[in-house]
Amino acid sequence: MKAWFATFVVLAVCVAFTGLLAVTVWDIAQTPALVQLPAMVAEKLSESGVKNPVTAVLLNFRSYDTLLEIGVLVIAAMTGISMARTPTLEDPELRTSNELLFALQRWFVPLMLMVAGYLLWAGSDRPGGAFQAGAVLAAAGVLMRLGARPMNFLRPGILLRLGLVLGFAVFLVVALASAFAGEAFLDYPEGWTKVLIVTIEAVLTLSIGMVLLALFVAGPVNEYGEEDDPV
């Protein structure tokens, strides 16, 4: 009875909230936005070095956001692998032996790698880019992982950490290097913009794929004897 009442209250609150939100959205929709940011983006697009405005916003106008966003990925992966004490990936228990899976691996993994490459390339003038490509890459990795393909770079170790941090580090190095040539940090030098953005996107793709894969792999296996700390 009490539980039923509590549920009712929660639902009532949520409905009230949704209603309020809808009214506010409706109100806001009645008047056009006071500033037209798209016009500004279009105006400066030529200076950004890429043709796709979304990519321009992501990697040029608001590149600091993107840098931090990659940081978030690295943080998540790092915390993930700090939890994971996976001793071996070739654990027979984890192996799935399934004809269909093997066939999928054979056929799909190369295809997915190609798609990832395409997405990456397309990012410079059409929707697409590092994150999408990285996600596809990670999916390919998951597929291989399910078949227990040995992927030594996923072992906790320097290689894994290097892979995780690569994209972030290159982004950061570019930011630093651009400061030598340009006026401000993340202010890409004239003419180099496209090359740099594509380079960043490429390493980011690798790192993002690796982060997502590492998070998938991060298992709960606990190999160390641990005592309780009072602190």
Partner: peptide, 12 residues
């Protein structure tokens, strides 16, 4: 979280 929503409603 419930309390937060209620507070937001009250504040609004």
């Amino acid at each position: 979280v419930l309390v937060m929503v209620v507070i937001v409603l009250i504040l609004t």
